[in-house]
Design a protein around this nucleic acid. Structure first.
Length: 619
RNA sequence: GCGCCUGUAGCUCAGCUGGAUAGAGCAACGGACUUCUAAUCCGUAGGUCGCAGGUUCGACUCCUGCCAGGCGCGCCA
């Protein structure tokens, strides 16, 4: 794959400047600091000369002039200027336009993609749902982030394994199972018309309700005793005892318990499949905790043999965290020989290394687990040099709602499906208004109006709602704790998904009113471009591969999201300027501008697709 | 108590390996529709970058201390 124009320009600039710096007497130029000047009028790429002042014992201003005079030409360079101790390069805009448009037209599917990391394998774990309830807003951020990051990593060449870990065992699962066993009366998702994950979640909630009732009764009978819910559950509750017994039965492999468990899990998976499909997510590898919870014991044995873990008198195996620069001791095996959370994670990591041998493993998990991963990676590194280093915790902040933090007890948890329903309904309402407006406008002009079908409108509303949700989440850096605002997320104005989609839809309208180009016009036609607004648009356009690479390397999709917003803005300025009206443009401007529009359309679609966002052809 | 993260415009957030005059969006105010879809665009106003030191030719960015908020520090996951 040949380097993208933006990379060629950067590389050309770097080589030329390096040569010039050496020529004026600096043997090692070091890392060059190339960045666009603050004012676009000063040039396209600038370099400060201050670092060489001490070495050369000359003023930066003078050095800049010397370097500027010595900078050799390279393809695309138009002018070199010295200003205030900076060397500023100006690119040949005719060249940039011709090459940039050719690039966008010819690359198509491969647009923005690169082979920087080709030949490297990477495993990314995300989602990690529990099988006792539907996924909520927190999972949505995880899913959306995981989807975008895995797309981005794939775009820069990685062979990406998308992995999910299903938390399908434990006391919380037994709670919903027990409630179903006692109160379900044989109902099924099919018999009730309830989506599987919600169906099971209802019993989880029911368990909690019954438990509270039981506790109230107990309190009434023990008026003088203080009790908290957890103690009641483990010590006094009949339901609690039954749930714990069920967990023991499950672990013993009791056929009846296992059958119920499998049945209820199946219902949940059917529900999850629908939610994942809606979000556009698929996985290549799925681990089930019911399977992984027994892993890791061999790892512990290895650690004991290596002398990095120790067996305490009570039988528990621990690791002194001072070995990895942390305080305290971490238990790896309980005194009864069973494993804990981190033991499973160690075993699961080792198994994944064996199965895939990835160069990198990324865990998309909320930031409350920062410490856990610090310990996990530290231990992995102790056990096998290089293993821990390959791992990375992509930590992200919590999602709040406008009215505050989500709390399941207060019923302020928003589940993924209803959230998407709500957003899509809001988008639908707006679309219908829009159609009505268009109908009126057409009537005024005496034109025929072909109303879109309900199905068409609904399909668009779905995509618009999705774009709002995904863009809202992805425009922030992962670390930022965000407050999800439904209205704001699907707002047509501002930095939103629908805004980007609207600019895309407008292109179709242009192409309909003009004609759709199938091939890139000749260079002589393209030379008709050159207004400041056109130049601004194309300069933004060619930055796309950089935005993708940066977003991928920093595991930060917001880099790309923000770039796409700026791109859409640049296009909207172009579109709205009366002097750039394409229908009214004379040839060859008209054709050249159509080519520019199509290039924009290709880039925007490719970029949004990396974020997991589908475009709509019409809005 | 210890560790990690955050603190930038009224609000929500960007700000790359330190570089030229700190940027967006929303809200506010003022403009642009006989339209290639105004779900748009153009403009105005708004900031002692939490505070105090330090390093540097140069600090929102690096270091130290303090203040405020969040999260974590289980033989839970």
């Amino acid at each position: 794959m040949t380097a993208w124009l933006v990379e060629r320009l950067h590389r050309g600039a770097e080589q030329a400047l390096r040569a010039a710096i050496e020529k004026i007497g600096v043997s090692d130029a070091g890392e060059l600091r190339l960045s666009p000047p603050t004012e676009p009028s000063m040039g396209d790429l600038g370099m400060p000369c201050h670092p060489y002042a001490k070495l050369l014992r000359r003023a930066p201003k003078q050095i800049a002039e010397e370097i500027a005079a010595q900078t050799p030409a390279f393809p695309g360079l138009a002018k070199v200027e010295a200003l205030n101790g900076y060397v500023n390069l100006r690119f040949d805009m005719g060249y940039v336009m011709r090459e940039g448009l050719r690039e966008a037209w010819s690359a198509d599917q491969k647009l923005g993609r690169s082979d920087v990391y080709v030949g490297k394998k990477l495993l990314i774990e995300f989602s990690g749902p529990n099988t006792n309830k539907p996924q909520h807003l927190g999972h949505v951020r995880n899913n959306v982030l995981g989807l975008a990051v895995s797309n981005l990593l794939e775009a820069v060449g990685y062979d990406v394994v998308r992995a999910n870990i299903i938390n399908d065992r434990g006391i919380h699962i037994c709670k919903s199972m027990l409630a179903y066993q006692r109160f379900g009366k044989g109902a099924t998702p099919a018999s009730t018309g309830r989506k599987g994950d919600f169906f099971v979640g209802d019993y989880y909630v029911l368990f909690d309700k019954k438990l509270r009732e039981e506790m109230e009764t107990w309190k009434a009978n023990h008026p003088n005793e203080e009790i908290d819910a957890e103690v009641f559950f483990t010590k006094h509750s009949e339901l609690g005892a039954a749930a714990q017994e069920m967990l023991r039965m499950w672990e013993a492999g009791d056929p009846e318990t296992r059958t119920l468990w499998e049945q209820m899990n199946q219902w949940v998976y059917e529900g999850f499949d629908a939610t994942y499909a809606r979000l556009g997510i698929r996985f290549d590898w799925v681990d089930y905790e019911s399977d992984t919870y027994i892993l890791g014991k061999d790892v512990v044995e290895k650690g004991l043999a290596m002398g990095i873990f120790e067996r305490r008198d009570d039988g528990a195996v621990v690791c002194d965290l001072a070995k990895i620069g942390l305080e305290g001791k971490k238990v790896l095996l309980r005194s009864d020989g069973t494993s804990v959370y981190i033991t499973q994670d160690l075993g699961t990591a080792m198994r994944r290394f064996e199965a895939h041998d990835p160069q990198r493993m990324i865990y998309v998990v909320a930031d409350e687990q920062n410490y856990h991963f610090q310990v996990l990676f530290g231990l992995l590194e102790l056990l096998e040099t290089g293993k821990g280093e390959r791992c990375h915790h992509l930590s992200y902040g919590m999602v709040d709602l406008p009215h505050g933090r989500m709390k399941s007890r207060e019923g302020t948890v928003v589940d993924a499906d209803h959230l998407m329903d709500e957003l899509e309904a809001m988008a639908l309402e707006r679309l219908q208004e829009q159609v009505q407006k268009e109908r009126e406008r057409a009537e005024e002009r005496g034109e025929d109006f072909v109303a879109p079908t309900d199905q068409d409108i609904k399909g668009r509303a779905e995509k618009i709602g999705q774009s709002g949700l995904k863009y809202f989440i992805l425009r922030f850096g992962p670390q930022t704790r965000i407050r999800f605002n439904p209205e704001e997320s699907i707002a047509p104005e501002g930095e939103t998904g629908p805004y980007a989609l609207y600019s895309y839809a407008r292109i179709n309208s242009i192409l309909k009113k003009n004609y759709d180009l199938t091939t890139l016009p000749s260079d002589t036609v393209l030379d008709a471009l050159g207004t400041p607004i056109e130049i601004a648009l194309i300069k933004t356009l060619i930055q796309f591969p950089r935005a993708v690479l940066e977003a991928a390397e920093q595991l930060n999709p917001s880099r790309l999201a923000q770039y796409l917003f700026h791109l859409a803005q640049a296009f909207s300025s172009f579109y709205n300027d009366a002097d750039h009206n394409i229908v009214k443009s004379p040839e060859p401007q008209r054709e050249a501008r159509l080519a520019l529009c199509k290039a924009f359309q290709k880039v925007l679609r490719a970029g949004l697709s990396l974020l997991g966002i589908d475009v709509v052809e019409q809005m």
